[in-house]
């Protein structure tokens, strides 16, 4: 059942690199990561690739497959045009380490700038809370995030404009939304979202939502409600009037 297929893989480091073609046998049911592993084991033992669970749960193997940000472990070859070489590149929004591996450490640093969870006092004398399932569900959507950073990769503010120092990107806006809408949280992050995290840079092109492997409705459910909170706080003329009075 196997058939040869060609993979055009970017090989290089921060100094630069080139695409190199590898031809390997592929079989029914294989995903892109399987092919990369086969190439690594048989032809290019030092090919750098980051992966972990191979089940779409850890978000480690993010790369660009034929120009589209994807998890390599969840991209089936049967959904690609195998008559042409499959083009594999590292994510563009982050600095390259080697080959398909990028330095995503910025995401971890930026996350620390978001104020931590701060719960209200417990509802019951035994130190526990009472929360309704409906209140949990809204936030559970955001907490599905596997931190693959594909949304960060496709975000124009980061990818084209390189505003990593000013803007936290869709992943971390989803994180902020999960905290802001958490039924127990009492912290206020609205001012930070406007002034430090510059949520205003997002112009809602929905690119991030389209690449999310967990199908989180990033723009509509997370970013827009946060923008509304910012607008409500800082730009509502009636409220401004009240503040003056």
């Amino acid at each position: 059942m196997g058939a040869p297929a060609t993979f055009r893989i970017w090989r290089g480091d921060p100094a630069g690199g080139v695409f190199q073609d590898y031809t390997t046998q592929v079989e029914e049911g294989m995903v892109v990561l399987d092919a990369v592993h086969r190439i690594q084991a048989q032809q290019a033992p030092d090919l750098a690739v980051r992966w972990n669970c191979k089940a779409g749960k850890c978000g480690s193997c993010s790369a660009e497959v034929n120009g589209i940000p994807k998890l390599m472990c969840m991209t089936r070859l049967s959904n690609l045009n195998m008559n042409a070489p499959v083009i594999l590149e590292p994510m563009h929004a982050f600095p390259v380490i080697r080959d398909l591996v990028t330095d995503v450490s910025w995401n971890f640093r930026a996350k620390k700038t978001i104020k931590a969870f701060k719960p209200r006092p417990p509802d019951a004398p035994d130190g526990t809370w009472r929360i309704q399932q409906t209140d949990v569900e809204r936030v559970q959507e955001f907490r599905k995030c596997i931190e693959c950073f594909l949304c960060q990769d496709v975000c124009h503010v980061l990818r084209e404009h390189r505003k990593h120092d000013e803007f936290i990107g869709p992943r971390l806006l989803v994180y902020a939304a999960a905290l802001e809408m958490h039924p127990l949280d009492t912290e206020d992050r609205v001012s930070d979202l406007r002034h430090i995290h510059n949520i205003g840079y997002c112009n809602i092109t929905t690119c991030c939502r389209q690449v999310c492997p967990e199908s989180i409705t990033i723009t509509e459910n997370a970013i827009i409600p946060l923008k509304e909170r910012v607008v409500d706080r800082f730009f509502d003329p009636m409220k401004r009037l009240f503040r003056i009075l």
Partner: peptide, 18 residues
């Protein structure tokens, strides 16, 4: 319970418990 106090959101019973 400690995890809940740190922000984990478990599925709930009808009376709002874990």
């Amino acid at each position: 319970r400690e995890l809940e106090a740190w922000g984990a959101l478990f599925d709930r019973t009808a009376d709002g418990k874990i």
